[in-house]
Amino acid sequence: MEEAPKMAVDFIGVDRNDSVMFNEILAHRLAMVPLKSEEALERYASPEECKDCTPEEAAAGKCVSSDGKPCYARLILEVEGKKGGTIVYTKDLVSEDPDVKPVYDNIPLLSLLEGQKVKLTAYARLGRGKEHAKWMPAVVAVVKPILRGVEVSEAVCDSKCQEECVELCPHAFEMKDGKLKLKEGTTISMLMHCIEYICEGRGLKPIFEEDSFIFEVESDGSLSARRTLIEAAKAVSQKIEALKTQLREQAG
């Protein structure tokens, strides 16, 4: 997942900032804002080609990949505080590219008093999560085994011991027909906590489904979960190809 690219603000050029928020904090907040990158993946240059581009080059529009794709998308923020104070939201960010815009319109960025002004240009580019977490399209990516039940060895734990266990762990176990059974809706972490710490040494063992598992991906909104998975798979296959060619070179 850390290899799947997405757009995020890489640096900002501040013309004017009268607010109490420091430029650095503002830059960090802007970088954290998820930007829509579904179309941008094809239209912008790859992270590897843009990595070494300096801010001066980017501002002059010199950052272009070998096949003519631009590196940076520009977003402009220009707001003046109104009477009673103004909160600047991401909807005030004007993007030059309609495909690269904030996913959420109502993210507060900073607050201004009357007469205070902020004017800045933010430069967003494609990047990968291993470089900085702001380029991580997936918030959660976990593989979970599927829980089938729990195995009790009668030799170690008789029915009295099982009843004790249910009393100690009412959120994970229940008694059914005089036997310890798994309660419905029990999560794996809850069960493992019970087995390893509370009912320790009582011969309990979880049963998992053998040839299937749950793979959970939660996206931050910039790419769909499906697209994230496809991009991550592409990155893995590219790595394998690179390894193959290297091995071939070494061998021959």
């Binding site: 928020m21 904090i25 907040r29 954290m32 804002v33 998820p34 996913v103 959420y104 109502n106 993210i107 507060p108 960025l109 900073l110 607050s111 977490a133 991580m136 918030v139 959660v140 939660e218 931050d220 909104g221």
Partner: peptide
């Protein structure tokens, strides 16, 4: 300062819910 844009731990964007 202002509240964080994302969850510190998992990185889920949270702030859009804050006002509600």
């Amino acid at each position: 300062m202002m509240i964080p844009v994302r969850c510190y731990t998992c990185g889920k964007p949270l702030i859009q819910y804050y006002e509600e």
